[in-house]
């Protein structure tokens, strides 16, 4: 389990845990980032902001892109999925 910040560019990761306050966790969830969501790391500049593409579940729809600012990406913990 690593913070999203340290995931490699181009890799596919799955969210294991979000360690943030209630408001933030909710905000992330609204953008489709919850426990179990699969993300593709589009851009990463550790420990800075990260751009991810949410490729949740069915894979039918090309995911939307979300920027997680500095610090934010440290609060989301992921596991590598290739």
């Amino acid at each position: 389990m690593i913070p999203l910040t340290f995931a490699n560019e181009g890799s596919l990761v799955q969210i294991v845990k979000v360690r943030a306050g209630q408001g933030l966790t909710r905000r992330l969830a609204e953008l489709g980032l919850t426990q179990g969501s699969t993300l593709r790391v589009v851009k990463s500049s550790p420990p800075g902001p990260v751009i991810v593409e949410v490729v949740n579940g069915n894979g039918y729809v090309e995911g939307w892109r979300v920027v997680l600012g500095f610090g934010m990406a440290m609060k989301v913990f992921v596991e590598n999925r290739g």
């Binding site: 933030l24 953008l31 751009i51 979300v66 920027v67 997680l68 600012g69 610090g71 609060k75």
Partner: peptide, 12 residues
């Protein structure tokens, strides 16, 4: 206090 952070959708 820390910034509640910055999350933003990137429009196509």
């Amino acid at each position: 206090g820390p910034s509640s952070g910055f999350i933003m959708e990137l429009p196509p």
